[in-house]
Design a protein around this nucleic acid. Sequence first.
DNA 1: GCCGTTTTCGGCCCGACTGTTTTCAGTCG
Length: 607
Amino acid sequence: MKNAEIAAAFDLVADILEFQDANPFRVRAYRNASRTITDLAEPLEKIAADPSRKLTQIAGIGAELAVKIQTMVATGSFPMLVELQAQVPQSVLAILRIPGLGPKKAAALHKELGIKTLEELKAACQECRVRSIKGFGEKTEAAILAGLDFAASPEVARMYWAEADVFAQALLEHMRGCKGITQMELAGSYRRGRETIGDLDLLVESDHVQEVMDHFGAFESVISVLGRGETKMSVQLANALQVDLRIVPAKSYGAALVYFTGSKAHNVVLRGMAKDRGLKINEYGVFNMAAAAAPAKNQKNTKATDKPKKKPTVDKDADEADEGVYIAGRTEKDVYATLDLPWIPPELREDRWEFAWAAENKLPKLIELADMQGDLHMHTDSTDGKATLEEMVEAAQALGLKYIAITDHSPRVTVANGMNADRLLRQWEQIDKLNEKRKGITVLKGVEVDILERGGLDLDDNCLSQADWVVASVHFGQNQPRDQITNRIVDALANPNVCAIAHPTGRIINRRKPYDVDLEAVYDAVLKNKKILELNSNPARLDLDDIHCAACRERGIPIVISTDAHSVQGLGVMRYGILQARRAGLTKQNVANTRPWKEVKKLLGRK
DNA sequence: GCCGTTTTCGGCCCGACTGTTTTCAGTCG
């Protein structure tokens, strides 16, 4: 089993134990282990197989968890989890996803009202039965109703792109061992870089179907084969991820890649455009229908410039070609070219802006990871980070960054050991000294200052004015009314010391809804005050999602893509933010930290 | 369940705020 699967299993155990009112420290042990494993740089399988090492050497993994990991690695199963899942059905756990409902309240609902599903909970709220339970009132009932949709959202069944990527890479590595494959690519939402993935689609060009399918079925994480036909095979992996394999011949590879990459909406437009030109596009290729059909089919105003690129090669595609003459399909570029379109990057294929851009020949040169020069949000062990200041700087430099900002928490975040002005000033002295010694990277004196519940910032201006970089963020009072949260953020943006708003929407995928905030007002305040918005690259956050990034692009609002790293490994998540930025059509120019620090300062109107 | 022992069990980052209560569970990173 992969680290991601083991981490997910421990997380699920924690959920169920929490629901069962188990010892909270035991629950925490599972959660900690899950997080540790997620952050782990090497596979547990490797450590487990090495007789010179012990799993218990990993911080937070004791004798018991080590045995459980060994079992999972060796057998691919986790008996404890199976047993727990039998005790607490999945549908009950969904109740925990409602904001404001924790294990205790969920258990009370289960025990007092016999509620087992979200549907039953909805009915109970509507019938005002929930308020009869001790500890519940009208407001809770209303909050539950408001949170039901979120808890029931289909996103629950999806996996973070980053998580799926672990399996995607392992699968590709495995498939590279198959001789009969000419080329292959993962298509679908994975290729489009969506923040969450429902399943994986592997497209393979090969003339050796059986050989490829056998090899595919032998991938280590496969637990069952869901189906196997002549060109398609589906399997399920240990982590419940489904992988579909499709095998096509060379002349269809490009067409199939377009078809299976999607999105559906993008493909619908492509097929419509094809139809207007007397063409047909499917997963086997582009076909000229006018050439095949009788001349009667010339009713539409086919442009004179539309010269039918008739290819005399009569490919007999038993399935499809009887309806038209094959004209393209080997590469994606060929397919798009039949519609006079340039090749469109997969991240843009959502039928949002890509066709308008392509029509004007204005497809942007999308931002790339290599464009990034700085990272302006990270924590150290002075607050809730795991690594020291020096370790973070060292790791950032190894990644090729030219500058970073250390942005530990302010005092309000007591649980993270937030820093007061005295501690911050001492840290900044340390940074000054570090900058004198170290060449090649600039370390900026920063802070992530909390926007307080009552409004205002958690540190005074005297302190903040000594920082190079100040990101302000809302961590508390997230359930306040829309206007209140909006005003808190807008006020913060008016403070001359603040540079950016970190996680401006507050969303955590699958776990927490965005705040109820008037983003238009925030956008206006950002522009008016010459500030920046942060896209948090943590795969669970991505809270300035592609839609919001696009809104910023249209309004000319500069964005910084940050990692919010809490460990050395955390610095590696930048690429997930880049994917979202690409989906939004952002270029280097839209993202402030692709530029040298001097220019970022200029952007903020500073010298 | 982990850790670190004054080695076999006690502590586990910890405080403010909210909704619901009249003492407390849940939330925030």
